[in-house]
Amino acid sequence: MPQHTPAPSPSRAVYSFVMYLSFEIFFILYLIWAVVPDEYFHLLGITFLPQRYWAVAAPIYFLIVLTVFAFVIYPAMGKFMTPNLDDMRTIKDTAGTRRNANVLVNVDSIKEGKCICKDKDKCYKEFYDSIQSKVVNKSIPVLKDIEMWDVSERLYLK
């Protein structure tokens, strides 16, 4: 993907302009097809258009699908995926309670491992290896849940 940024860029400008114009044209063509009587099309030799019933039916089908999804299916999926209030999953999960979450990285394993950089000039491995011990000592511990009883003790028993 060439895009990492949501900012405007020249290629985006071109494609969005094309999109803007084509939807405008599409809308005008749709209106002409939906409003102008069939005889005029037959005069021009255009006999292959779909029935005009679809000019009304297709948008209504689309809107009904959209409504059902937005107001029924998506809220229902959200409700199904949310655990109950007294469920243990609202208090604890696997992300915050990993064992040894405080131990950063094993320094030796990094030193032995091979570098995956494609461009050796831009590789910072040597640099990070040299400051690794400093990083481990001074760094902020990895994010981790505090046990529930510690929280209760601190909040209610003191």
């Binding site: 990492h4 940024t5 900012a7 405007p8 071109v14 302009f17 114009l21 461009d119 831009k122």
Partner: peptide
């Protein structure tokens, strides 16, 4: 028609940039 409109509509271009923009991380490779 489309190129004429494209060239004409350029004067409405009004992109704003500032410190609130998302940071862009360039790929090292």
């Amino acid at each position: 028609i489309c190129p004429v409109l494209f060239v004409r509509y350029q004067k409405y271009k009004d992109n704003i940039y500032g410190p609130w923009d998302e940071a862009v991380v360039d790929d090292v490779d």
